[in-house]
């Protein structure tokens, strides 16, 4: 076999999308490339899951929470011949006792990620080799939370506006907007769907937008002394618009049902998450913008779920 130019490690997982669920076995192959051949004191594989938190407007480091920590010795100390050695491995996705597994998620202040890390020790004289690869964990929820759709109907007229003084209501140009959101308890792999109908509107409509907002909350207590963590307490919230779609543009035909349709972006969403110290929630805003600049907004708190 030819002598490779460099020594190195490559990790290959059996699944192309690298998505695994709790209690599933991750299998894969290590490709160890050895230049000239060398001896080592053992090859170790660590699979770790961590939840990293950060307080908005605070630079204080919060100690990451370990969700998973598996360690296996892939090879006992020995010698690798020149060339590529293939070593199969496998481990199970399972959580620590005190912390249940959470879904992989990359947010602004909260992130959950899982990594496979392979380390090769080559004794004192030689630099060790390291390689990391992220894998994704999805945590399905129990069926009963999501088995039935919970629709939300809405009906907007000048009188339903809550931020308008009742005395002004009479002067607001008339409109009558009706609709429905097919489910509040959304499934993360299905689009958000619903309908909206402009029954009437005196003003010309400029557009109708659909906005998906993510709210991350981290317990403020985490920022201080770490002794009181479990109690939670006041949360620091941060809302981010993660997707905004026009579902209508221009003065749409009155009485025609316009679909509400949004495919949830993959990376920025995760099932709604609620722990004592941090949470990730979602909201949907329907905004009808009129030509004169006025805007009517309806807010829908929604929850995202992953099914089995």
């Amino acid at each position: 076999m030819a002598n490779p130019e460099h020594s190195g490690i490559e990790i290959q997982l059996s699944r192309f999308d690298r998505i695994y669920r709790p209690l599933e076995t991750v299998t894969g192959i290590l490709l160890l490339t050895a230049k000239d051949g060398w001896s080592h004191t053992g090859v170790t594989l660590n699979a770790t899951g961590t939840a990293t938190l950060q307080l908005p407007s605070s630079s204080n480091e919060i100690k990451p929470r370990i969700l998973m920590n598996e360690s296996i010795k892939v090879l006992e100390s020995g010698r690798l011949d020149m060339g590529v050695t293939k070593v199969p491995f496998s481990f199970t996705v399972k959580g620590q006792k005190e912390n249940a597994l959470l879904e992989t998620y990359h947010g602004a202040y909260i992130s959950v990620n899982y990594v496979v890390k392979v380390t090769v020790e080559r004794g004192v004289m030689k630099r060790g080799l390291e390689k990391e690869l992220e894998f994704i964990v999805e945590v399905p929820q129990r069926k009963k939370d999501v088995s039935t759709a919970i629709p939300t109907e809405f009906h907007l007229t000048p009188s339903t506006l809550d931020k308008v003084n009742s005395s002004v209501v009479g002067r607001v140009p008339g409109f009558d907007i009706q609709g429905v959101l097919h489910r509040k308890n959304c499934l993360i792999n299905l689009p958000i769907m619903g309908e909206v109908v402009i029954n009437s509107s005196e003003n010309v409509i400029e557009c109708i937008d659909l906005q998906l907002v993510r709210v991350e909350s981290v317990s403020k207590a985490l920022g201080g002394s770490s002794s009181d963590v479990s109690k939670g307490g006041e949360m620091a919230k941060e809302a981010t618009e993660i997707e905004s779609l026009q579902i209508a543009i221009g003065d749409v035909v009155r009485g025609l049902t316009i679909p509400i349709y949004m495919v949830l972006p993959r990376v920025y969403t995760c099932p709604s998450l609620k722990t004592a110290t941090f949470q990730v929630e979602f909201e949907l805003n329907l905004q009808v913008v009129f030509e004169d600049g006025y805007m009517v907004t309806e807010n829908f708190p929604i929850s995202l779920h992953r099914t089995q």
Partner: peptide, 15 residues
């Protein structure tokens, strides 16, 4: 049929 109904969101009749 989804796309057909999405087009209803286009207000300008010509467009």
């Amino acid at each position: 049929s989804r796309l057909a109904s999405m087009i209803r969101g286009v207000g300008d009749p010509l467009v």
